[in-house]
């Protein structure tokens, strides 16, 4: 792992965050909104892991690793809940986005 590599990924977090955030609002379909929220989460995880890779002599910092594993489980739980809501709304009304006429 070179010193530059984690900087590349740390920097990648910025556009990913922006894409995810705008996507949650701009995408119309529930499924895409959920995907956008997942991308938003991935950007925060990416930055945390990139920070952990800054080596000060003890190898990677395990605290952000643990934080991200916790975060991944939380994010998937929330996504599964959101999917259930979206699917139920679709089954009951035929709406696949907010503000649609059934």
């Amino acid at each position: 792992m070179t010193a530059e590599a984690h900087e590349i990924y740390a920097l990648l977090a910025a556009p990913l965050f922006a894409v995810g955030l705008v996507g949650v609002f701009a995408c119309r379909h529930f499924l895409k909104k959920i995907i956008a929220a997942k991308i938003l989460g991935a950007s925060a995880f990416l930055l945390l892991i990139a920070l952990a890779a800054r080596d000060h002599g003890e190898g990677p910092d395990p605290v952000p690793h643990a934080m991200v594993i916790t975060g991944i489980v939380v994010a998937v739980s929330a996504a599964a809940f959101a999917l259930t809501l979206a699917r139920r709304i679709w089954q009951e009304t035929g709406q696949s986005g907010f503000g649609e006429k059934p």
Partner: peptide, 9 residues
């Protein structure tokens, strides 16, 4: 669902 997405953001 709107609440959940807002809460996630």
């Amino acid at each position: 669902l709107r609440y959940l997405l807002a809460a996630l953001v």
